[in-house]
């Protein structure tokens, strides 16, 4: 009985559902107890009902936002990885371009969103570019540091084997840098959601950021909260996909961390 109970609360999923349910019930009761108006704070039941009723509208806008996020993110992946490789391999680029890119990071990117609208119009382009700008840097930096922190002996090994540039890149340096790259991807995918919403705030006629802005200005509390809820789920889903891909593509990175933890537990 005791061990059964232990298994039950050790299960991450169970504990998560449990804590969320407790929070939702408390919320529901608090709203009723203090008779808070719906436009200020709708109860969870009202949010769920709203999601159900406005499913079509929400779905449409979710697709728009996801499209912006994915296009910007993929673009940043390609550019960040390629530029990271160039910077890691070329000392000249490392000194000039890298310093320049680091310097541009001090400009708050959100501040240039209105400019992007002026330059690129009202369509999807400024949103995609904003997502790209936010995602690009973490990916590039991690690619560079991943390629540069490859074990010296592995590089010597490549040389002694007589591996050419491409072989040593494909067989040793790039795979060794992959766990670093995924660190960057995990940071970026969270930033991507923020980038899409922020740029929709500035100027848009569709998307979750747009619905958020419109519904809150019309004091449609339940709808606003529905959008926030959906955004949370989109964020979690995208992050999970990246984490899942990491597990699939470089399983050794995760096992290392898990083993280290196991070893330290054994030793202590």
């Amino acid at each position: 009985m005791n061990s059964y109970w232990k298994k039950f609360y050790n299960n991450e999923f169970v504990t998560m559902v449990l804590s969320f349910s407790v929070a939702a019930i408390a919320w529901e009761m608090a709203v009723g107890l203090f008779s808070i108006p719906q436009w200020l704070l709708p109860p969870p039941t009202a949010i769920v009902t709203e999601i159900y009723q406005s499913a079509g509208y929400l779905w449409q806008n979710t697709l728009v936002t996801i499209e912006e996020i994915l296009l910007g993110f993929v673009l940043a992946c390609v550019a960040g990885t390629l530029l990271g490789i160039v910077i890691a391999y070329s000392p000249v680029m490392g000194k000039t371009l890298y310093k320049f890119l680091v310097a541009t990071q001090s400009v708050p990117k959100v501040a240039i969103t209105p400019l992007l609208v002026v330059w690129l119009g009202l369509g999807m382009a400024p949103k995609i570019i904003m997502v790209f700008l936010l995602c690009f840097f973490p990916i590039m930096v991690n690619m560079v540091s991943g390629l540069q922190s490859v074990n010296r002996e592995l590089l010597d090994l490549a040389e002694v084997m007589g591996a050419d540039w491409l072989q040593s890149f494909l067989k040793i340096r790039f795979p060794a840098a992959l766990p670093h790259l995924f660190n960057g991807l995990r940071v970026s995918i969270s930033l991507a959601v923020i980038g899409a919403i922020i740029s929709e705030f500035v100027c848009a006629d569709q998307g979750l950021g747009y619905s958020l802005l419109v519904s809150s200005s019309q004091l449609k509390g339940p709808l606003t909260f529905s959008v926030v809820t959906i955004l949370a789920f989109v964020g979690i889903a995208l992050f999970s996909i990246v984490a899942w891909m990491e597990k699939l593509i470089c399983p050794w990175a995760k096992t290392t961390a898990a083993e280290d933890r196991n070893n330290s537990e054994k030793n202590s």
């Binding site: 074990n151 002996e153 592995l154 010597d156 090994l157 067989k171 040793i172 795979p175 060794a176 050794w252 290392t256």
Partner: peptide, 8 residues
């Protein structure tokens, strides 16, 4: 090498 330097 001093380390096994195997590819994980």
């Amino acid at each position: 090498f001093q380390q096994p330097a195997l590819l994980p």
